[in-house]
């Protein structure tokens, strides 16, 4: 059975149907990319999975538990972390305080300390700036902090929403390298990206979302060579 199974999910904002019955699976150890244009509903899918937006109907089953019946604040302790669009780090708190909030639901102090060390190893720049107020970090550093904060909950799956948005090309490559290495160390990744080329290059499988429907899915390498994907998302 897959780690995360989404079945016939519908989400609406008032009269507007944002997600019109999508189903997909994420298996343990994979990187799954969810690509699509602006407004296709990618962010809504992630928000619905972690309970920030209630679904209209359908089910989201994570390791056997239906997340649609779980309060949002209980989801992270089940092993699912979410790096939201626009990072949404706590701007007025320090880097270190942000990381500690990432470990909010964990109790064991020694384990938390170990996670901090791991995050600092992965993001040496965060270690240098541990006492700096997060709002004063650069965009790329804020993205690293958002990822580090998510890793602090020691997740088995991590949802990432547009991690490359607004970053310089140099940072974009760095962020994608980090996503790959996070995955290699055993964390499943569900990646939402407008940068389809980059996303498909690191993903195992991908789903293409168009105005609330999944229109294409399959192996990431194959999708990269798909003519309609090339035309619509890869600019070729």
């Amino acid at each position: 059975m897959s780690m995360l199974h989404i079945e016939d999910l519908h989400v609406s904002y008032g009269a507007i149907n944002a997600i019109k019955g999508i189903s997909f699976d994420v298996d343990e150890g994979e990187i799954i990319a969810l690509i699509g244009a602006n407004g296709a509903g990618k962010t809504t899918v992630l928000h619905t999975i972690t309970g920030l937006v209630p679904p209209k109907s359908g089910s989201i089953v994570f390791n056997g538990t239906d997340l649609t019946k779980t309060p949002a604040h209980k989801i992270v302790s089940m092993g699912m972390a979410h790096v939201p669009e626009g990072r949404r780090i706590f701007q007025q708190l320090s880097v270190y305080e942000n990381l500690m909030l990432g470990a909010f639901t964990r109790k064991d102090k020694a384990e938390i300390q170990e996670s901090v060390e791991n995050v600092f190893k992965r993001f040496p720049r965060l270690k240098e700036r541990r006492n700096q107020i997060a709002g004063t970090l650069s965009g790329g550093e804020q993205q690293m902090l958002a990822m580090g904060r998510a890793l602090m909950s020691h997740p088995s799956i991590i949802l990432m929403d547009e991690p490359s948005m607004g970053l310089s090309p140099l940072y974009v490559s760095e962020i994608f390298d980090i996503i790959r290495s996070v995955n290699e160390s055993g964390t499943t990744v569900l990646l939402v990206e407008q940068n389809a080329k980059k996303a498909l290059s690191i993903a195992n499988r991908a789903y293409v979302l168009e105005t609330g429907n999944i229109v294409l899915s399959g192996d990431a390498k194959e999708l990269m060579n798909n003519d309609s994907v090339k035309k619509a998302y890869l600019g070729e």
Binding site: G51, H73, V76, P84, R88, F90, L93, F104, T105, S153
Partner: peptide
């Protein structure tokens, strides 16, 4: 700290498990 987090961003605070 949870109060500070909620005052800044309720959604992000929820994602932290608050």
């Amino acid at each position: 700290k949870a109060m500070l987090a909620v005052s800044e961003d309720k959604g992000a605070a929820q994602l932290m498990g608050i």
